[in-house]
């Protein structure tokens, strides 16, 4: 079968504005990933088409992009799950500066990730010859948040991010959850102070876009709600 795409193009060395370019790719089948279609264009039709990609099965988080209006990973989306009767629209992740075509500048995303101190803080010496103990139940409380692959699909799907560039965004705050709820961590209050600000957890207006965008099916809004409850009920 054939498939048509409208891809947002932008080359800063040539273009003053981004524009859509139409492509028709022939001989595809409905079990192709959208990434396979992009590869077909890049390697057989137009070598200048630019996007990030690596593992091609939804683990590395490189190929987040806006596909038919929704943030997705191009490698985790098959053609059969898209309406191929009309052109598929492919754009870069919204709200981050475009470097070229579908490649966006991720630096502000990583800067916000670093703000929440994304590492275990525990100043009590661990047992000399063994692990810190944790029940499997407690461990599993972290697993959903620890699934995050930092693809930025959630943060760039959030209207609060679009209107406020200082907002920490769901990905960074989900990382904060992963440590605040880790029984081994001792810096929960420190992290909650970071979130307890107008550009932190309170700028989450429970819009649920992040859940729809998350390719790992993490219920991000639920996690952020837990943080809101915990922060608003803590003793100061």
């Amino acid at each position: 079968m054939d498939v048509q795409l409208k891809i947002l193009r932008y080359n800063p060395e040539k273009d003053t504005e981004p524009y859509f370019q139409d492509f028709t790719v022939r001989g595809v089948s409905d079990d192709w990933r959208l990434l396979d279609v992009l590869q077909e264009i890049k390697w057989k039709m137009d070598g200048t088409l630019t996007y990030r990609f690596s593992c091609a099965h939804g683990i590395c988080g490189s190929d987040g992009m806006k596909i038919n209006g929704r943030n997705r990973l191009a490698c985790s989306l098959l053609l059969k799950d898209l309406n191929t009767n009309k052109p598929i629209t492919v754009e870069p992740l919204p709200s981050l500066p475009i470097i070229k075509d579908l490649v966006v500048d991720m630096s502000s995303f990583y800067d916000k990730y670093e703000v929440v101190k994304p590492y275990l803080i525990n100043n009590t010496p661990p047992p000399p010859n063994g692990e810190r103990l944790q029940s499997n139940e407690d461990a599993e409380k972290l697993f959903e948040s620890a699934k995050c692959i930092l693809c930025a699909c959630c943060t760039t799907s959030c209207p609060s991010t679009w209107t406020n560039e200082n907002y920490l965004g769901p990905a960074a705050m989900l990382k904060a959850y992963r440590f605040i709820y880790d029984t081994r961590d001792e810096a929960g209050n420190e992290r909650m102070d970071i979130l307890d600000t107008p550009d932190g957890i309170w700028r989450c207006h429970t819009i649920f876009n992040c859940i729809e965008a998350c390719p790992k099916e993490i219920n991000i809004t639920w996690h952020l709600s837990q943080l809101k409850k915990k922060i608003s009920s803590r003793e100061i």
Partner: peptide, 16 residues
């Protein structure tokens, strides 16, 4: 584990 890696656990709370 001390660095913070989350592991599945056994019944004693050790690394599974």
């Amino acid at each position: 584990e001390h660095m913070g890696m989350p592991f599945s656990r056994n019944e004693k709370g050790q690394i599974a």
